[in-house]
Each structure stands twice: as C-alpha cells, then as structure tokens.
Write a protein that binds this DNA or RNA. Structure first.
Ligand SMILES: Cc1cn([C@H]2C[C@H](O)[C@@H](COP(=O)(O)OP(=O)(O)OP(=O)(O)O)O2)c(=O)[nH]c1=O
Ligand SMILES: [Mg+2]
Length: 655
DNA sequence: AAACAAATGGCG
DNA sequence: CGCCAT
DNA sequence: GTTT
C-alpha cells in the first residue's frame, strides 16, 4: 500500500473547477479533467528529484470508487500525470500501454466489462499501484511481472541484457537500459520515436488523441537525491497536529487518544476473554490470536494427511507467485490446512469440509476431489518445473525470490548453471558460501549434535567471562528432535557494573574492562582457531553495541557436516524479550507481536512497548517508539499481553 | 467490498 | 534503498 | 482464498 502522504496539492492554477465540482467528479471524469489541465500545461509535472518516469505511458487507472472519485484516486491520478503519464479515462485496450489497478479480479472484471483479467490483450500489462511507486526508487520502474495484478495475466518485459544483469542489487544504480522496457509491449509501440529529451517532448505529448512516443526512457538522472531517511522513522509529520512547537512531547495528545480508544474497547469486554485479548480481538477479522490458544500437546496421525499434502503443494505454488493474490492465498490455504489438521476423523462430504474454519467453497471442492481421486488435477498444471527450480535456487543461503526469478528468467535451470556462472550470474560472498555447502546447510541435525556443538562452545565462552549467560535457543529450546541450526543467546548481568562488552561505555581504562574486545569477538576468534566455526556469513560491524548478531557455519569435528550457527548478544535488561524472541517459533512470535500491535503496544527482541502510535492507514508504520513496559522476563511479557504462560515446547504454531 | 499486515538488522 | 535473513 |  501507499505509505506516504507527502504530495502537496498537485494542480497549480485554476482555469479550473471549484473544489466542490472536482470532488463530485467520477473517476473517468476526473481523469479526463486532469488530462485537459495537463494539456494546458497546468500540471506541475516533475515535483521531485526523479525524472518523468511515466512519460509516454497511456494508463487506465482502475480503482474501486462507486460514485465520485475518492481523494486517494484523485491523488493517484494526479501523481500519474505529474510524472508524465497520459490518463485514459476508460478501459480501451487499443489506446493503452498500461493498466494500473487496486481492484480484485471480480471488481476489475466488472469495471472493464471483461470476463476475467485473462481477457486483457497479452501485451498489455495490468499492474498494481505499487509498480508505479517503484518509479521513485533509485533503480527506476520495476519489471512488470513483479507487480502483475493478477497471476493469470502476467506480462514479461524483454530480458535484461548481460551487462545489466545483477545478482545483488546495486544501491547507486540510476536509470535503466532502454531495452528493459522496449520489447514485449503493446503492438502499437513498435517503432515509436525516441522521446529524446523527455523534458522537452513532454510539452507536446499530452493530448489524449495522439499516441505519444511510448518508451520515453528515463535517462540516467544526474541529481537523483538519495533518500536519507533513518530507518524506522516516520517520513511525514502527519502525527503532529499543531506544528508541535515547544511542547515537551508533540505526540502527547495522541498518546491520550490511543489510550482512550483502548480503554473504550476494554469496557466492551466479553466475560469469556481477558480484557486485553478482547480489546485486541474485537476489531479483528479472523477471530482470536494463535498465541492465545495453548496447544493440547496430543499427537495423533491425521486422518486427512493426503488432503493436507496436496493442499501444501498448492501453497508451494503460490509461495513462488509474485502477486498479492498469491500472498493471500498462501495464508488462506495455510489456515485451511491448520483447520483440517485438527480433525480427528476422515472428511466424508463437502458439507463437512465447508464446516472447517478457513475452508470455503473452492477449497471444499478441492478437498473432495482429493478424497475421491487421491489427487488434485489442478496441480498438474501449476506445479511446474519452474516452481521446483525456484525452490532449488532459494535453497542457497542469501538467495531469495527476486534473485531466483532473475536467474530463471536469464535461463539458469540448475545449481551447476549457477556454479558455472552461466548467463552472467554473480554471487555475493554469503551466496558463494551458501552454494558451496548447499547440502550441508539444507540438512537438519539431530538435537544431540546441536547439544554436542554447544558443549564445545559454552566452556570457551565461560572461560572468557564466567558471569555470562549462554544458552541455546530456537528449536532446540523448544525441545525439537532435530534442529535446522544452532541459535545461541549471550548476555551478562550488570550487577558488578560490567557487561558482555566490558565497561567501555563508562570506563575508558582498558585495564578495567572485563573483556577487552568484547565477549563475542573474542569467542568467535577462539572458535575459529579451534576449527569449530568454519565460515562467516554475517559479522557485526559495530562491536561496541550491546546487541550483536553473528551468522556463520560450524561443525562438531572434521568429519561432521557444516551447520548453520547464529549468535545473539543482548543487554541484560532485554533478556526476557530476547529469550522470547529467540525461542520462537516464528509464527508464535508473529502472533504475539500482532496481538501487541492491536493492543496499542509493540513487541520486539528488546521489550514490550506501550503508547505506540501507528499510522492508521498503514498499521505497520509507527510514529514513535513508545515506552518500555516489560523486558526482563518472558513471564512478564506474557502477562501484560494477556497470553497464558506457555513453556517453550508449547510455543509451536508452525509446521 | 474490504480486510487480511511482526519487527528488526546486515549487505552491497 | 531493496533484498535477504532471523 | 476466506471471512465479516
Ligand atoms: C526465521 C524467523 C525466526 N524468528 C525467531 C524465532 C525462531 O525460533 C528464532 C530462531 O530462528 P530459526 O533458527 O530460523 O528457527 P528455529 O530455531 O525455530 O527453527 P530451526 O530448527 O529451523 O532452526 O528466531 C523470528 O522471530 N522470525 C523469523 O522469521
Ligand atoms: Mg534455529
């Protein structure tokens, strides 16, 4: 979704309509209107540092407005025009180069009069709004297929030429080669004139009747400003109501408002639930939080395992899909599978299937097909070789969906292709190590081996500083019989005024430090020398920080496989939150954090924070950090969240 | 018809 | 920043 | 894809 709301009123000078008249316009009318303004040179066309990256594009923007165009729709239309696009007010494929939409399939079909997005001409891309916003990035507009609105209508652009291809993103990259956008486009694009100086040509390119030169390329723009915003900080001042002059805390009234809101919800409590749980669950669509439900610990073989197996293949497929729809389907099928897993009897009818939470009519049908035939025929079409290849590539540490798709698109099919650097593939250092030990890293180890390796490490740590707390977390702490890696947490009490990095913050005298280099640095050095740690993947850069993360490989002895190992060091005050985080599992953590979020809190590996103000239109975005209310013990955090205490082995929510 | 949303850090 | 990792 |  859109994150910023920084755009000033886009339209400068009215020979125009009154505000009221504008507000009453329907989307198509507004599109035509703003087109006329643009034609008259009355739209400021290049507001920011980037060039008119939409120059020459003829875009139909389809939003869900019923009557008048909403402010957001107008905003976005303004934006499109401002960056050089020509808005086409109706769905008219012959005169379009792009369709941009926020609609789901059904809405889109209704709006365009088509049966389905499949019926859009093959060369005409239908893209999400997010694609437009990528034009502001350093790398310029993203490739179409990465932002396809619907997974059955994905338009690919021409393959990036050798020289352009990259394995690892380059931050300072400016424009894009023209061939990126050149081919595979609507037929009317061929042989368009080069837009030359986009700036100059734009003046005469606006009329809707004329087909503007399409692929006006962004030329490398000398003065692209580099975003300097600090991570996690709000980029707007939307939360400061009155300029926030000299007040101690400009957000004070928002704290009060947030608190009041929470308390209101608390009063409308259901007796069945604890106050906080109800407050949080009240606004929620899919009911309770997973972390609230303590698993009964019973294990039995599932009578519908075959169904689950087939549906999981569908999850695999959609996991590799790049669209938003795919993302939601992954979630939807996963929820359905969780529902099915709870059943103690074999599903016998579609009615029975439909009764399962998370199973709707489509999934119920699929379930019955599996029950009756043992197989889901749809999988024959969607579970392709390409899916398997993408999964193989993503098995390399440091390779995610983007790089995997890039390699596939470039023509790579096997790990040997990657090893041989075919098609211009380049590897980062971590990827290189990941490929070298591909099989080792992807194997899980018996918990006994994790234990044994840990016992090589712990004494070394304690010999550096006997007051350290050192323990294995992750799946090992949850009691799993096999572990994907070893997760080690390190901290140290400060009752003697020292910490696991010594006292360097308060004491400059190196002779008084407990550990001259900091525990972790000394420990890693020692373990390298002993041959326990064999490769680094990710080494902390600022060793002065109390919170450090290390990732690498290790092995029990020269005959052992290479195993992934992670270290996390934290301030002693954070130990409860860190324990909670690092014990997981990941799904459990997300559930706890989601609940915290909905309660007006925020939970991370440092603690539980209250009075967190979030952006109402994007709840993931925080306006402030909040004030810490729990961090020293796990139990305290459970209590404040109203989650029943659960031992590590009970905190399993994922497969 | 709209919602569905963890939170953080390192690399290049 | 965008990607990848936990 | 499902739920509200
Ligand atoms: C991967 C991941 C882990 N975590 C937390 C919870 C995990 O238990 C902890 C360690 O991460 P992992 O080592 O990736 O997970 P794990 O130890 O639970 O399972 P495995 O046996 O496969 O190693 O970090 C998250 O909070 N979010 C994540 O996305
Ligand atoms: Mg682990």
């Amino acid at each position: 979704m859109e994150r910023l709301r920084s755009a000033p009123p886009p339209v400068k000078r009215p020979a125009k309509k009154s505000k009221k008249a504008v507000a009453a316009m329907r989307p198509a009318e507004y599109a035509a209107y703003i087109g006329r303004l643009a034609a008259a040179g009355m739209v400021r066309r290049r507001p920011l540092g980037r060039g008119p990256f939409l120059a020459g594009f003829r875009i139909f923007y389809a939003d869900g407005d019923v009557g008048a165009a909403s402010p957001m729709t107008r905003d976005r239309m303004d934006y499109l025009v401002r960056y050089g696009a020509t808005l086409v007010p109706t769905y008219d494929p012959a005169h379009l180069t792009h369709v941009v939409t926020t609609l789901d399939r059904a809405q889109f079909a209704r709006k365009t009069g088509l049966e389905s997005p499949r019926d859009v001409p093959d060369a005409l891309p239908v893209l999400r709004w997010e694609w437009v916003k990528t034009g502001e990035r350093a790398g310029g507009l993203a490739r179409w297929h990465e932002h396809a609105a619907y997974n059955d209508h994905v338009v690919f652009e021409a393959v990036v030429p050798e020289g352009e291809r990259r394995t690892v993103p380059e931050a300072c990259r400016r424009g894009r080669s023209s061939s990126v956008q050149a081919k595979g486009k609507a037929a009317d694009v061929e042989g368009r004139p080069d837009a030359g100086d986009a700036e100059a040509s734009r003046i005469s390119e606006f009329t809707q009747d004329r087909l503007a030169g399409l692929a006006a390329e962004q030329k490398p723009h000398a003065s692209v400003q580099k975003a300097q915003r600090t991570r996690g900080e709000p980029s707007t001042s939307a939360a400061t109501p009155h300029g926030g002059g000299g007040a101690a805390d400009p957000l004070a009234e928002f704290y009060a408002a947030a608190r009041a809101e929470r308390e209101t919800e608390l009063r409308s409590d259901t007796p069945l639930r604890t106050g906080h749980a109800a407050a949080a669950a009240g606004s929620r669509q899919t009911g309770a939080f997973q972390c609230d439900i303590v698993p009964d610990g019973k294990v039995g073989t599932c009578p519908n395992q075959d169904v689950i197996d087939e549906l999981n293949k569908l999850v695999k497929v959609h996991r590799q899909g790049a669209t938003r729809e795919d993302g939601f389907k992954v979630g939807a099928y996963t929820r359905a599978i969780n529902g099915i897993r709870k059943l103690k009897t074999r599903i016998k009818s579609s009615e029975e299937a439909l009764a399962i939470a998370g199973v709707g009519s489509k999934t119920a049908q699929k379930i019955m097909e599996i029950i009756e035939t043992g197989h889901l025929r749809r999988l024959d079409h969607v579970l392709t070789k390409e899916i398997a290849i993408l999964e193989t590539f993503q098995g390399i540490y440091g390779v995610g969906p983007k790089v995997a798709r890039q390699w596939l698109a470039a023509g790579c099919r096997t790990l040997d292709d990657i090893r041989e650097g075919k098609h211009g593939v380049k590897l980062s250092t971590a990827q290189h190590t990941g490929l070298k030990y591909y099989d080792d890293i992807n194997a899980r180890m018996p918990r006994e081996e994790a234990q044994a390796i840990f016992e090589l490490i712990k004494p070394v740590a304690l010999s550096i500083d006997p007051k350290l707390f050192v323990d294995i977390m992750g799946s090992f702490r949850r009691g799993k019989a096999d572990c994907g890696d070893i997760d080690i947490l390190i901290t140290r009490p400060t009752d003697d005024g020292k910490s696991h990095i010594g006292r360097r913050l308060h004491c400059k005298d190196p002779r008084k430090l407990t550990t001259p280099l900091g525990v972790l640095r000394r420990l890693l050095k020692e373990l390298h020398e002993r041959g326990v740690i064999t490769e680094d993947l990710n080494v902390p850069e600022d060793w002065d920080d109390l919170e450090l993360v290390y990732r690498g490989l290790c092995r029990r002895d020269s005959k052992g496989l290479q195993r992934r190992i992670d270290f996390l060091t934290v301030p002693y005050k954070s130990r409860g939150a860190a324990l909670l985080y690092y014990t997981g599992d990941d799904i459990f953590n997300r559930s706890m954090r989601l609940k915290a979020n909905k309660m007006g809190y925020s939970l991370n590996q440092r603690g539980l924070y209250a009075n967190v103000i979030r952006n109402p239109s994007d709840r993931r975005q925080k306006f402030n950090e909040g004030v810490i209310i729990a961090s020293e013990t796990e139990r305290e955090i459970f209590e404040k969240l109203g989650v029943p205490w659960q031992e590590p082995h009970q905190r399993v929510r994922g497969g």
